[in-house]
Amino acid sequence: MLELRLVQGNLLKKVLEAVKDLVTDANFDCSSTGFSLQAMDSSHVALVALLLRSEGFEHYRCDRNVSMGMNLNNMAKMLKCAGNDDIVTIKADDGSDTVTFMFESPNQDKIADFEMKLMDIDSEHLGIPEAEYHAIVRMPSSEFARICKDLSSIGDTVVISVTKEGVKFSTRGDIGNANVVCRQNTTVDKPEESTTIEMHEPVSLTFALRYMNSFTKATPLSSTVTISLSSELPVVVEYKIAEMGYIRFYLAPKIED
């Protein structure tokens, strides 16, 4: 028996909007730790890892570890039917081939049940070791989204370089080239508007902008984004989900052919 009651139901709506374009089908894993997902895109270039910790739910019952295969587009369709202020409960009976999403309006005057068919998904779970990153950039998520969108109108790839000067996002295309430099800026009043750069070693890596733009669909989940770079590893683009966990996107870099 599984029963997860999330007062901030719109969090789940936002999570689905953030991942459904990257991944079509995925297994949601439920354990005493929380509700999680790890899935790669179909070309095995990008990976999304989601964790919503059990403590973040108002009620969390998960009698045994369960993996539920879901079509994310269908799940998003169902969650779109929940009101933004609705409390969302995810329910599944042991061995059942369906999952139920229950939506309750805040004053309990409307209760809706949406039952969705589960699917068997063969997915490869990757082991992601803890790593030391050469540079960690923390910046407003809206700023990062803006840069990715702007650069993708010029080119297909972005070079992200971190030096003592700051973090530089560069692209080039048929019509010309573009560079955006963000410097460390901690003097602003609000911490969510600041940019911080923790650099152990300068690093410069090239990534496909198409994926970066897809990751920025998670912008509504967090006011800040953390970009962790190392020359030997995929970049990690992380959006913290307040009091609940995170959504992390991993993207393998491009190399000179």
């Binding site: 790669m40 070309s43 095995h44 270039v45 990008a46 990976l47 490869e124 779970h125 990757l126 082991g127 992601i128 790839t157 090239t206 496909a208 030997e232 590893l233 995929p234 991993y250 393998a252 870099p253 491009k254 190399i255 000179e256 052919d257």
Partner: peptide, 14 residues
């Protein structure tokens, strides 16, 4: 030109 690497070059299947 650039070649896109795959995640398997960095991470192993559990």
């Amino acid at each position: 030109s650039h070649k896109q690497q795959k995640l398997f070059a960095f991470f192993t299947i559990k």
